[in-house]
């Protein structure tokens, strides 16, 4: 039963990921992406990674995609729906995707470390919040602080840029 769930969520995720590309209506695309993110969160949860799953929903589905949708709704959607499919561009896109998949396959075939099974987890509920926190603040403390400073600089930069009138 529980081994079925990851497959189910993967199928939903991939299906809606295709819908993101295939939909002509930007709002429909954005919402498909939300469902795809939710299915990804479900995939994490079905693999017992509750924390990552919830953060996936909180950050991507709940915050970033809401802002995306917000901006898309302010656009003129009629123009986007009238646009027809360009055959040459479609074929080109398919070709690039096919080449990428072939390359990926040929590289991964020779990467034997990737086929090792994961060591078995300890039985019982996983305290993943504590695990992630301890790891982040001990082994990866410096990169974590650097990223924090980087994001702060970016935020201040945006505030400064949006406040000053361009001359």
């Amino acid at each position: 039963m529980s081994s079925l769930l990851p497959w189910l969520f993967s199928a939903i995720m991939l299906g809606f990921a295709c819908a993101v590309v295939l939909n002509r209506n930007p709002v429909a695309s954005a919402l498909s992406l939300v469902v795809s993110f939710l299915a990804l969160a479900g995939l994490y949860v079905s693999l017992n990674a509750f924390f990552i799953g919830v953060i996936q929903v909180l950050v991507y589905a709940g915050a970033i995609m809401v802002l995306f949708l917000f901006i898309i709704m302010l656009l003129d959607l009629k123009a986007e729906e009238r646009r027809t499919l360009n055959t040459t561009a479609t074929l080109g896109g398919l070709l690039v995707a096919a080449i990428f998949v072939c390359e990926l396959f040929s590289v991964l075939r020779h990467f034997h470390k990737g086929s090792l099974p994961f060591p078995p987890l300890a039985a019982g509920p996983l305290d993943d919040v504590r695990g992630v926190g301890t790891m982040l603040f001990s082994n990866y403390n410096l990169p974590f602080q650097v990223i924090g400073a980087l994001i702060l600089v970016a935020t201040v930069g945006v505030v400064v840029l949006s406040k000053r009138e361009l001359k």
């Binding site: 509750f50 924390f51 919830v54 929903v57 909180l58 709940g62 809401v66 949708l69 919040v129």
Partner: peptide, 17 residues
Amino acid sequence: VNIGILFVFAIASLSVY
């Protein structure tokens, strides 16, 4: 679940849709 309150925030953030 161990992540109780985070789960609440995650679902609440979906109510905007």
